[in-house]
Nucleic acid binder design. Structure first.
Lengths: 192, 192
DNA sequence: GGTTAAGTTAGTACTAGGTCTTAATACTAG
DNA sequence: CTAGTATTAAGACCTAGTACTAACTTAACC
């Protein structure tokens, strides 16, 4: 509860609260500020904040926009171009969270994760499993560099897919990997 | 419009349609299949598909909980035993955040990340860089399983280290990888 | 043919979380 | 005292549903 604020103060805090938790409904907000629901609605009107259902819908749309067969947050990097079972491109902006502390070099597993994610995402199968991977890290990647990974499906035999991924920074190859991916549909249905 | 399907066929296509576009409301679905809204609702009931607002809310929540993924922590897994330049063990408890949505199978790059982290951590050098990695994922890992990775340094030659990592769940091998790691001290001091 | 069951449609009552409008208060400054 | 701002309240309406009951259609079986 945040009582006895002026209108301006309340509206400021309101914006913050909604930013922090966009799932709050008007009734809950009214309780937080100890005002009536109507007041909250007037505030939202003045601040141009849509109702909770539109807020969450927008959030969901943002998250959903690009990807189909796999949900957005499961992918490392942004998928920018996909032809299912054929090829795809993913872009990953590197940041401080990805580096070794002492250097400014991006840790290998982030580069691997982008490539692996991409290899799995371009396949038109429900449950893809990485079977093996041969990878080469050709030169260190530094913070801030933009990783562009390009995957191509080389070969499909039954439930086995061979996918090759090349990752570049400004045309320069920094990583390459060959992934053998399985369609794990049977396995997943066994439920372990 | 997809007309004249049997109930089973319709329900199958319905699931697919909603997976492809979770924002479809019952009325739109009814138009797609040329059946009444009630039929769509019975289908959803049987298939356990929630209403559009719950679907989008869930999507939004997923997206909002954010990609914890593998960034943030320097080391993936807990180091429990280390002999520098010789061997080390790391334990990683798998959880819901690490799996593919549709299955309960841990995504490959988490297993890789643990192994890679360990391979780098056991070396007594300031800046370790993964040069290449050959990896095999021997069987799927399910949520909740505890990954125990064991690394041994096989060979040191100048600034090149060969590290082998085996990851097990209850003694059973689930992953193995050979990492070629470089001491990147010179590179890192160049500052790029 | 008659009966049973499955599948489909229709209709009603009710819900949450709103919108939009009008109207009544309370408080405060000039 | 009054004008203006802030707040609250009341009511009609909306969307996208749930839950339930009832009727109708169709094919399958004996």
């Amino acid at each position: 509860m945040v009582k006895n604020l002026s209108k301006k103060e309340r509206q400021k805090v309101l914006q913050k609260k909604i930013r922090e938790n966009p799932f709050l409904i008007d009734r809950e907000l009214a309780e937080i500020f100890d005002v009536s629901i109507q007041t909250i609605r007037l505030d939202r009107l003045e601040l141009n904040i849509p109702e909770v259902r539109k807020r969450t819908k927008n959030l969901a749309k943002q998250a959903y926009s690009k990807v189909k067969s796999i949900s957005g947050c499961e992918i490392i990097g942004k998928l920018v171009d996909i032809e299912l079972n054929n090829s795809g491109i993913s872009i990953l902006e590197t940041n401080e969270d990805m580096v070794l502390e002492k250097t400014k070099i991006v840790r290998g597993h982030h580069i691997f994760a982008q490539a692996n994610s991409l290899a799995v995402a371009i396949l038109d199968i429900d449950a893809a499993l990485t079977g093996s991977a041969k990878t080469k890290f050709k030169r260190p990647v530094y913070v801030g560099e933009r990783l562009i990974a390009e995957a191509t499906v080389n070969n499909i035999r039954g439930d086995k897919f061979r996918v090759k991924v090349k990752t570049r920074v400004n045309q320069e190859e920094v990583f390459s990997g060959k992934f053998l991916v399985f369609s794990g549909e049977k396995l997943s249905k066994e439920g372990h």
